[in-house]
């Protein structure tokens, strides 16, 4: 069976830590960091990267468009 894996890249310095991406993720991959970026925002990051399926839900709801999404199909 083909398994899908994904990954996101957050433009950390442009993330405003709004958290809108967090509930949008069906896999609960994303959390807001304890640390802050240069603007003082708790930026989003992949807390559980192995669970990401590259569905892009997080990216399409991100108001600031700071998430890029990557996806691969893995053949077992």
């Amino acid at each position: 069976m083909a398994k899908v894996r994904g990954a996101i890249v957050v433009d950390v310095e442009k993330c405003k830590g709004c958290g809108v991406c967090v509930p949008a993720c069906p896999q609960e991959v994303i959390s807001l960091a304890k640390e802050v970026n240069g603007k003082g925002y708790h930026y989003a990051y992949m807390n559980k990267p192995e669970d990401c399926i590259g569905c892009a839900n997080c990216a399409i709801v991100c108001p600031d468009g700071v998430i890029s999404v990557y996806k691969v199909k893995l053949d077992n």
Binding site: R5, G6, A7, V9, M46, P49, E50, C52, G54, A56, A59, I60, G65, V66, I67, S68, V69, Y70, K71, V72, L74
Partner: peptide, 18 residues
Amino acid sequence: MDFKDIIKPENLVYRRSS
């Protein structure tokens, strides 16, 4: 597979509009 290996230009499926 480490997620870092997924982040390659050919695997890009979504980015902000150019």
